[in-house]
């Protein structure tokens, strides 16, 4: 059987909000040692989301054998919306069962809610993501990245991200004109405001803003976002929830026609 309790249930609510616009149906994998995982591509196979909540990130975690649970994410989100942000959330499933149970407990235990979501069989392709040394690693406030993506999307459809010793430049162009936003590394002691750019070699890649904007739905999970880039490779946009897990998004670049 599988049983996992998150004292801070709001994290699971935020995780669902971070994936449900990108993916309709997905297989969650519960693993005895690794934890609770999901890997899924969007329907056009342009982007991928990979999330993991570590087994020891849960207040209680029991998983006797690996378990695959296919869920409709919109329906899962409907149920999790019924949990209050302060609630603890426990997930439970039997090895051969066809439902997953969600239990919400209010902090004072005066309200206990039980929801059962029907599981579904989903054919999914699992992609092997090679371990790569990226040419560039950018760490910046997640709210700043969200702001840049949403601002540029009002001007154009794609963003060129170019990274050099000068900093990281986000550029777009559209019918009404152009926009460029440049960020420079800072020496902020305040970790939330830190901008750091590790540069192995300069990179210039173009991505669809629609997907990047969808990734920023994970902003409430973390004050900082980590962006990794290499020439001619998908971008990685990662939000780390300290001591709990992470959600990583991959997006294939656009190339010249």
């Amino acid at each position: 059987m599988f049983e996992a309790r998150l004292t801070e249930g709001a994290i699971l609510k935020k995780v669902l909000d971070s994936v449900k616009d990108l993916v309709t149906d997905a297989n969650f994998e519960a693993d005895p040692t690794e934890g609770f995982k999901l890997q899924a591509m969007d329907s056009s196979h342009v982007s991928l989301v990979s999330l993991k909540l570590h087994a020891d990130g849960f207040a209680h975690y029991r998983c006797d054998r690996p378990l695959t649970m296919g869920m409709n994410l919109a329906n899962m989100a409907k149920m999790l919306k019924c949990a209050s942000n302060e609630d603890a959330i426990t997930m439970k499933a039997d090895d051969a069962g066809d439902v997953v149970a969600f239990m919400f407990e209010s902090p004072g235990q005066e309200k206990i809610s039980d929801f059962e979501l029907k599981l579904m069989d989903i054919d999914s392709e699992h992609l092997g993501i090679p371990d790569t040394e990226y040419a560039v690693t950018i760490r910046m406030p997640s709210a700043e990245f969200k702001r840049i993506c949403s601002d540029l999307a009002t001007i154009g459809d794609t963003v060129a991200i170019s990274v050099s010793k000068e900093g990281v430049k986000f550029s777009t162009t559209g019918d009404i004109g152009d926009a460029n936003v440049t960020l420079r590394q800072n020496s902020e002691d305040d970790k939330e405001k830190m901008i750091s750019i590790e540069l192995g070699e300069p990179v210039n890649l173009t991505f669809a803003l629609r997907y990047l904007n969808s990734f920023t739905k994970a902003t409430p999970l973390s004050d900082q976002v980590v962006i990794r880039l290499s020439p001619q490779l998908p971008i990685v946009v990662q939000y780390v929830v300290v001591d709990v897990g992470y959600i990583s998004y991959y997006l294939a670049p656009k190339i010249e026609d």
């Binding site: 992609l127 092997g128 090679p130 998908p234 997006l251 656009k254």
Partner: peptide
């Protein structure tokens, strides 16, 4: 603007 590549071109099945 530009041709969107497929993710499967980068990652192994």
């Amino acid at each position: 603007r530009g041709k969107q590549q497929n993710l499967k071109a980068f990652f192994t099945m």
